[in-house]
Simulated scan of single mutants.
Amino acid sequence: MAEPAIDPDAERAALGDRYFIRFEQDTLRQRPLWIRLIIEFLGTLVLVTVAAGSGVINHYVGNAPISRTAAVIAPGAVVMAMIYAWGPLSGLHINPAVTFAFAARGVFPVRWVVPYWVVQFAGAICAALFLQGMFGDVSTGGNYPITSSGGEWKSFVMEGVLTAILASIILNTATGGRSLGHNAAIAVGSTVALLGLFASPISGASMNPARTLGPDIVGNDYTGWWVYIAGPLIGAAIAVAIIGAVRGLPDKDELEAAEGGALPMTVTPTPESN
């Protein structure tokens, strides 16, 4: 008895279906913690290299060719780019205050907070070591309170206010699963830049303990260090309280955005081959 003829087009279609199902399963599979930590380390390293690099390079070459405007827009632009590229892999917190905010909101595993913090600070320190090795005097890329009377307290309040604004933007763009899309990349990146444009003369507009303490540790200059820990953490807590009051309990989309990527998908039956 002759075997039935095999339709090449049907066979190719079946192979294509199996490929795309496997691709979706690989893409949507819950990523292990070690992958997330690599992304958080690299992301923080890139952010601090850019954010602290302008001050270090200005000091190195002299005459301040990088303007204050460029120095605050650059970190916002690199955050925007990294959300597009790496957001689905870890949530791209790259900021201990953001990790704290997501955990306090109840959309990020508490057991992951310390590992995230460790690699974020490690990335910031490695970025500072790179700048120190390349150009020297990494302290010139640090953030410090204004030197006027009561400068540390004014800077502390400003860091709290700025972080509350930034964390509110991040938490609210995460709601509805938008953290991985265009809205979050543009909103978060532009917020980093805009807040720096008007507030950087007061405190440096750090909004990120790792960004400040990385250069401080390598440069051994801890001027006003408490401002850049207490201010961002209190600001993040304020943002969590605000979103809790106006939006209520978090939903599944927020959980997926905070952790990066999507939860494991239901396995789709593989089409039978002919």
Rank of each mutant, 00 (worst) to 15 (best):
D9C: 09
V138C: 07
R31Y: 08
I125M: 14
W34Q: 13
G43E: 02
P215I: 00
L15A: 15
G196M: 11
L131Q: 00
E152R: 13
V113K: 02
G160H: 01
V72P: 10
G231Q: 08
F100W: 14
T99D: 02
T49P: 02
Q120G: 00
R111E: 14
W153R: 12
P109L: 03
I217K: 05
A193I: 08
L15P: 03
E254F: 08
A52L: 12
A257T: 10
A10M: 13
S67I: 11
F198N: 09
C126L: 15
A124Q: 01
G261P: 09
I242A: 01
I169K: 14
W112H: 14
G150V: 06
T175G: 10
P75G: 06
F108D: 07
A128M: 02
G136P: 05
G235V: 04
G76V: 13
I229L: 10
G231T: 10
A64E: 09
M158S: 14
G87N: 07
I217Q: 03
M82E: 13
V78I: 15
N183W: 13
V98E: 00
V246T: 15
Q30A: 15
I125K: 01
A5P: 07
T49R: 04
R31M: 06
E259Q: 12
F130V: 15
R105T: 05
P109H: 05
A210L: 09
A124I: 02
Y19G: 03
A124Y: 07
W153S: 13
G76F: 03
R211D: 03
D26E: 12
K154G: 11
G55H: 07
A164W: 08
A241R: 08
I35N: 11
S190T: 12
G176A: 11
V61T: 02
V46D: 04
S179T: 01
A184H: 08
L45A: 08
A187I: 00
P96I: 01
P271W: 04
A101Y: 00
G106R: 00
S67N: 11
